[in-house]
Design a protein around this nucleic acid. Structure first.
Lengths: 148, 148
DNA sequence: CAGATCTCAGCTATACTGAAATGC
DNA sequence: CGCATTTCAGTATAGCTGAGATCT
């Protein structure tokens, strides 16, 4: 049986199916280097914004605050980040990217780039940009609607 | 903190985020009418293909064979489908859509159409078609690669 | 015999919730 | 006081696996 047309033309269904493939691809590649999805998001945020609190990392990466705790614990155990109390606000931790963590991020970037190529293998560069633009609008719209 | 650009431009991340929003929207609306995501997929497949075995339904809807069992049990309890042994192949059940089930599907279609509008609120009709076309290529490519 | 189907029991990862401890 | 942050324990669901019983 082929996929019913009622599903085949429904964006919600297509997005869910595409997400399953994307997740499988990312988990395979990131997992093969002994890392986790969330770790890439956190390292990327630290590289772009510098030292950050865990709450800020959670908001910036859409990783739940409680999952940030676990992911940072692993990253710290491997020396990719350091955590220290924030002198300016003792509720917070200052999370710092180490040089080793920066190298780790660069390796992950290659892996994640390969994921994009694998996921969008049939698509031209121009089509990939259009897809990114369309999906960005979806995500921005609902991210804004969800926090407001 | 805003989303790091390393994530914002990664299709895998965008698709995952969009999928979270899509799933939340569908679950809210379908759940509000006392139904489940899977039930819509199964009823849609039955309406398009007529009587089917559970294995065919599983392949056509991408609902796992074991989850088909549970979803059909609920649909049958509410009178939306009937199941009977296939005389031509006693391993199989013949799953039949009842008139009540057909009405139920029509209600769900309205609900699911509203989901698409909510998910793609910022997009024009033309943009929605482009998104569907791009995502269809992703899904078809990986569906083919995954079964082969 | 190999292979398909239906069913159940259970597993894992993801996203999320609640609450406690602490500090602003 | 209300509110934010970190942490831990636990929940819900989706998707999936393994195995048994049955049949082709």
């Amino acid at each position: 049986m082929r996929t019913p047309s009622m599903l085949n033309t429904a964006p919600t269904w297509l997005i869910n199916q595409a997400s399953l493939h994307a997740t499988r691809i990312v988990n395979d590649r990131i997992g093969a280097m002994g890392a986790h999805r969330y770790q890439y998001r956190l390292l990327a945020a630290l590289a772009e914004y510098g030292d950050s609190s865990q709450a800020d990392l959670s908001r910036g990466t859409m990783v739940d605050r409680s999952d940030v705790v676990a992911a940072l614990k692993d990253l710290e155990a491997d020396g990719y980040v350091r955590r220290s109390p924030d002198p300016a606000d003792n509720r917070r931790n200052v999370v710092t990217l180490t040089p080793t963590g920066r190298r780790r991020l660069r390796e992950m970037e290659k892996s994640v780039a390969a994921c994009q190529d694998e996921l969008l293998a049939p698509h031209t560069e121009h089509e990939r940009e259009r897809l990114v633009a369309l999906l960005s609008r979806v995500v921005e719209h609902h991210a804004a609607a969800h926090e407001g």
